[in-house]
Measured scan of single mutants.
Amino acid sequence: PPDDERKKAEKAARSGNEEKAREILERLGYSEDEARELAKRLR
């Protein structure tokens, strides 16, 4: 489910793995720019 994926992205971002967070968010349908912004904010 998307919620689980989003949680994974948050966890990745918090542990400093912004790249992985961005990949997950892009898979969820965010654009590259949106995903980058979100990954930064989740950190």
Rank of each mutant, 00 (worst) to 15 (best):
A12R: 05
K20L: 15
S15W: 06
E10Y: 05
R43M: 15
E34A: 09
K40W: 02
G16R: 05
K8M: 13
K11F: 04
K8F: 10
D4P: 12
K8E: 14
A9C: 08
N17D: 15
D3E: 13
R43V: 15
S31V: 00
A9Y: 04
N17K: 06
D3M: 13
R6F: 15
K40R: 11
N17M: 09
K11L: 14
A35F: 03
G16A: 04
R41V: 03
A39E: 10
Y30T: 00
R14M: 11
A35M: 04
L38K: 04
G16W: 03
K20Q: 10
K20N: 05
E18T: 09
R22T: 06
P2N: 14
P1N: 15
K7D: 09
A35K: 03
L42S: 04
R41D: 12
A21V: 07
R14N: 07
A12F: 08
E19I: 12
K40S: 11
G29Q: 00
G16F: 05
A35N: 04
R14A: 10
L25Q: 02
D3G: 13
A35H: 01
E19C: 15
R6N: 05
E10T: 11
L28K: 00
S15A: 15
K11I: 15
K7A: 12
K7S: 11
A39D: 05
R27V: 05
E26Y: 00
S15P: 02
K40D: 14
P1V: 13
R6Y: 15
E18F: 11
E19W: 04
E32M: 02
S15R: 11
R36W: 10
A21H: 03
K11Q: 14
L42F: 09
E37I: 08
E23G: 07
K20G: 09
L42H: 02
R43N: 10
E10M: 09
E5S: 10
E23W: 01
R27A: 13
E23H: 10
E26S: 06
I24F: 05
E23C: 11
G29R: 00
A12D: 03
E19Q: 12
E23Y: 01
E34C: 10
E19R: 13
N17W: 13
E23I: 10
R6D: 03
E37S: 07
K7L: 11
L28C: 09
Y30L: 10
R22Y: 06
K11W: 02
R43S: 14
A21C: 12
E37Y: 05
R36S: 07
R27N: 10
E34T: 05
